[in-house]
Design a binder for these strands. Structure first.
Length: 998
DNA sequence: ACAGAAGCTTA
DNA sequence: GTAAGCTTCTGTT
């Protein structure tokens, strides 16, 4: 640690190669600390000090880290830089610069001065300069350090400073403990540091009021700079930009871009009083620093500093003395680092298996006995990760394989580098043959310091190809059951390695069939806690999370073995507990017909993916950006200030505070509601602003959620988008889709539908869309046995018109659309477990009027009231409802004494029978579909499911033959398990894109 | 970095 | 009034 006497300024040879200058962005840090930390007031007089404490902790930690760690970053020079005032030369350039800054919060103001005092107390130079921002001073010192051959680290995460990053200048974000170098800048912004100025000139900055070019965000800016080199190149050749609107805005806003560039360019020749020599880092002066900290009443930090500097706290004067614990100040280890770690206490007592109140006691029949016995065994057994072994040679693996064959069943778990099975590289495989007898086969663990060529593969691992060749016959052996938690993931991964794993049982799906709706998820950790009373190792603790995560391939093999083998062991033990319960509860056929066979079907759909046209999305994105920018300007014009329109809080303040519009409801946190519904109502009353806000929201929603996000999901290997379907995520039996969610692609508005045109068929192919018409109402007509509805569906009539006709005694012929609309809302209301409140909301009518509608409806369709009452009674009695195929959906809270919770569960259970039955029907269709297409010698492939719709891709020539097969399979899906008393109807169409096919 | 609220998209 | 997932903002560690 450099410990240099302050050199006289007359001697210039201060900083040299090897030195390292730390530049703390004091002003930036003050705001972050203030907002990140809870309010804190000095006990003796209530002086606000949270930002001061945050600042002191950060500086102290930085100084400690710097001298302790071996990362090689040891500061020899150190400065804390502040803004002098908000008025700088930039205000002369552009009067609006930072003009929208509001005054700092009341309780932050006194802390500015205190933080400067703190800096002095730390014996650090405290630097500011009138007319310049802290950023300019940092730029100046960075340059001086570079020219002296020294390194510099800027302590900040402000993007405005990233233009300074270079080979010898880095940044460090102390709050996230993250280094920012050239690669990180490129990763975050898509351009190297030297192009950050041009990027910011294009994007602008709403916080600082730098205009930029409207509608150009970081993604577009990076792409343009890539294409044209720099801002000048771009402006000179703007006429070459392909996208019409973008070209026009850039040409029109060239001046804004130029002035923005001036604003964001940091001045690196600020005439500083203090030279580099004045920034030499000095040892903190213990008593001086402790005096300050005591004055601030920071007891913990005072104690730490006292320990590290061997200062006796009692010897130090403070203006406001606090009672200090007497156990400090004994250690002599100056600069020896952080205080000794407290030993972590042993985790508290053994977890107990949750006993499930809903479970019936053993009945005496075999399945119930077995299931009770297994449960007892499961909870009694210990799980001991130290007993697991790593299989590191072919001979051992062969022995395990032989043992598994003998057993006839094994649990399996693939370890990979990614949660996306389409991108995951196989790292290892774990297997379990009997409870506690589990092993891990590491295949591709690396030392973590391998180069890009894949070096660093650890020794004593069976080569992937060899291990998979040995495992393949076992994994494909029809006489050996494979037990897996979440089989779909493993199927996708293993099939990419040419292995078709089967037959299998999936513990996640068994749990889902048994316990959908009961508290707790169906993931392995939840199930292990619930059934085995054991909390398994957590992957995050091995591999980290977020930005700091490492691949599982970099986890050391010993730790990986404990984790991975345990996963397989738990899956096996869960299977032993859960599988017998299926038979005990009569749920085997639900599992075997609706769940298990769907797994490979969905795995294939996910692997196929769907083709998405990048150009269409990028064009749409540009259009949306411009539309949004236009709306934004109009809104600013009306409001008179540049608020953040995306902030409901600010929006509420403006609309209902400043502008005095009649505020409707408040949200549960007490904020004004700014929902679309409410804004529409205001617009209907003739207000101009709410309409524009609704428009802006639509445009930005479409842009951020769809046109900007979807291209990022295009798999570079397949050039298609592969969603992930969750089989056990909903309570009702529906699937869900994520990463990306392809079940909520817009369709209602013309603008939104354009996004569907980007989902396209391959050349020479068509997309086929087949969707069930009114499936939930048909299910309702069937289960509630409503004669009029059954007849209407049998006749192929307009169901909402018939409903209206029955209710209001008006003929279907010439019916006003408003009458039909109300009947339609009631029909949907029934499916959702109707309430007068909800119907009133939906139709914007008074609640008693809605109540009268419902009453009338029940008079005309008494069977529906009976159905609703039966469902509620059944759910209350059993704690679950069932679909017509026997799927159970639990509502444990239906007996709640809280009326609103109870009512909610009643509505949900009414809906679940209908939604769940519809979900079962389409599941059956999906399970039957592949064989039917195969039999008809058709090559159509199922790609997507959207609850009541299936999307296929097929060659042009087979379109006509495919449509009737698809329709038939879907319409007959309930058969032969159930014969419905209402026909199902499917509409199917083919086109080049999803919009036209739907 | 993460969690919750608000808002919006779908069936 | 049912069932989902994603983005942005906001507050906090």
């Amino acid at each position: 640690m450099a410990w240099t006497a302050k050199a006289g300024r007359a001697i210039p040879a201060g900083m040299k190669k090897g030195d390292h200058l730390f530049l703390v962005d004091g002003s930036g840090y003050i705001f972050r600390a203030y907002h990140a930390l809870p309010p804190l007031n000095r006990k003796s007089d209530g002086l606000p000090t949270n930002a001061v404490l945050g600042f002191c902790n950060m500086v102290w930690k930085l100084m400690q880290d710097a001298r302790n760690t071996n990362v090689g970053v040891v500061p020899t020079h150190f400065a804390v830089i502040f803004d002098y005032s908000s008025k700088t030369f930039r205000s002369d350039l552009y009067p609006e610069y930072k003009a929208n800054r509001s005054a700092p919060p009341e309780d932050l103001i006194p802390q500015f001065g205190l933080i400067r005092q703190a800096t002095v107390a730390f014996n650090l130079p405290c630097i500011e300069m009138e007319g310049f921002e802290a950023d300019d001073i940092i730029a100046t010192y960075s340059r001086l350090a570079r020219e002296a051959g020294a390194d510099a680290t800027i302590i900040s995460s402000d993007k405005d400073l990233m233009q300074l990053v270079g080979p010898t200048v880095g940044m460090y974000d102390p709050m996230k403990d993250r280094q920012i170098g050239i690669p990180e800048v490129i990763e975050k912004w898509g351009v190297p540091p030297e192009k950050m100025i041009d990027l910011q000139a294009l994007t602008g900055d709403s916080v600082d009021n730098v205009p930029g070019v409207p509608g150009i965000g970081p993604k577009t800016a990076a792409q343009l700079l890539e294409q044209f080199g720099d801002l000048d190149g771009l402006l000179a050749r703007a006429s070459e930009i392909k996208q019409e609107k973008r070209r026009e805005t850039i040409i029109a806003n060239a001046d804004k871009a130029r002035i923005s560039r001036e604003l964001v360019t940091l001045k690196n020749d600020v005439p500083m009083k203090e030279g580099l020599d004045d920034l030499v880092l000095h040892e903190p002066d213990g008593p001086k620093l402790i005096g300050f900290l005591k004055t601030m009443e920071f007891t913990t930090l005072t104690r730490r500093v006292a320990e590290a500097t061997a200062t006796e706290i009692g010897d130090v004067q403070a203006s406001a003395v606090t009672v200090e614990r007497a156990d400090t100040a004994h250690g002599p280890d100056v600069g020896a680092g952080a205080p000794p770690r407290q030993p972590i206490p042993e985790s508290n007592g053994a977890a107990k298996p949750a006993v499930r109140g809903e479970d019936a006691p053993p009945q005496g029949d075999t399945p119930s006995l077995l299931s009770a016995l297994r449960l007892e065994q499961g909870t009694a057994r210990k799980i001991d990760p130290s007993a697991y072994t790593a299989i590191r040679d072919a001979a051992t693996l062969k022995a395990w394989i032989a043992e598994a064959r003998e057993a006839g069943a094994l649990a399996l778990d693939a370890e990979t580098t990614s949660s996306d099975p389409m991108q995951a590289d196989l790292v290892g495989v774990s297997i379990a043959i009997a409870p506690g007898r589990a092993a891990y086969v590491p295949l591709a663990h690396t030392s973590g310091n391998g180069d890009l060529l894949g070096g660093g593969l650890l020794e004593n691992q069976i080569p992937v190809r060899e291990a998979l060749a040995l495992l393949k016959p076992l994994l494909e052996d029809r006489s050996v059951l494979k037990i897996v938690q979440d089989m779909k993931y493993d199927i996708v991964v293993m099939s990419r390695h040419g292995i078709e794993v089967g037959p299998f049982d999936d513990t996640m799906l068994i749990s889902y069939v048994l316990d959908a709706g009961t508290s707790g998820g169906h993931d392995l950790a939840s199930l292990s806690e619930k059934w085995l009373g054991h909390a398994p190792a957590v992957k995050k603790e091995l591999a980290g999370s977020g930005k700091n995560a490492i691949g599982f391939d970099q986890v050391d093999i010993e730790r990986a073995t404990k984790y991975a083998a345990e996963q397989a062991d738990i899956a096996l033990q869960l299977w032993q507990v859960l599988k017998p319960r299926l038979a005990a509860k009569g749920l085997v056929s639900v599992y075997e017909r609706l769940e298990r066979p769907l797994v490979p079907v969905l795995a294939r759909m996910e692997q196929r993916g769907i083709s998405v046209d990048r150009q269409i999305l990028s064009r749409l994105s540009g259009e949306l950006a411009q539309g949004a920018a236009r709306a934004e300007e109009e809104i600013y014009g009306i409001v008179g200030e540049r608020i953040n329109i995306g902030s409901p809080k600010q929006l509420g303040d403006i609309l209902f505070g400043k502008m005095g519009l009649p505020g409707g409801s408040k949200t549960k946190t007490g904020q004004w509601s700014t929902s679309a519904q409410l804004l529409e109502d205001l617009a209907a009353e003739g207000h101009e602003l709410p309409r524009k806000i609704v428009d802006w929201r639509q445009l930005t929603k479409l842009k951020s959620t769809y046109t900007d996000a979807l291209p990022g999901f295009i798999n570079p290997g397949t050039n298609r988008v592969h969603t992930s379907y969750a089989l056990a995520a909903t309570t009702t039996g529906r699937l869900s889709s994520s990463d990306p969610n392809l079940q909520n692609i817009p369709v209602r508005t013309a603008e939104g539908r354009k996004i569907r045109t980007a989902f396209i068929a391959e050349k020479g192919h068509k997309l086929v869309s087949a969707d069930y018409s009114q499936i939930e109402l048909r299910v309702l007509a069937h289960v509630a046995e409503i004669p009029q509805l059954k007849q209407a569906f049998a006749d192929g009539a307009d169901i909402h018109a018939i409903t209206a006709s029955e209710m209001f005694n008006v003929p279907v012929e010439g019916m006003p659309s408003e009458v039909r609309r109300r009947a339609k809302a009631i029909n949907f209301g029934i499916i959702y477990g109707i309430s007068a409140f909800g119907l009133a909301n939906q139709l914007s009518i008074p609640r008693d009027e809605a109540g009268a509608y419902i009453k009338r409806y029940f008079e005309r369709f008494p069977g529906i009231r009976d159905y609703i009452e039966e469902t509620k009674a059944y759910a209350r009695e059993h704690g679950f409802v069932e679909t017509i195929f026997g799927r159970r959906i639990h509502y444990p809270e239906i007996r709640s004494s809280n009326p609103s919770i109870r009512a909610f569960n009643e509505r949900a259970s009414i809906n679940a029978r209908l939604q769940g039955t519809a979900a079962d029907i389409i599941r059956r269709a999906m399970v039957h579909m592949e064989e039917a297409l195969d039999k008809a010698k058709l090559s159509a492939r199922m790609l997507l499911q959207v609850h009541d719709e299936l999307i296929f891709e097929t060659v042009d020539e087979e379109v006509e033959a495919t449509l009737p097969v698809v329709r038939k399979v879907m319409e007959n899906a309930p058969m032969p398990a159930v014969s419905m008393s209402v026909p199902l109807h499917v509409d199917a169409r083919a086109a080049n894109n999803w919009d036209e096919a739907h």
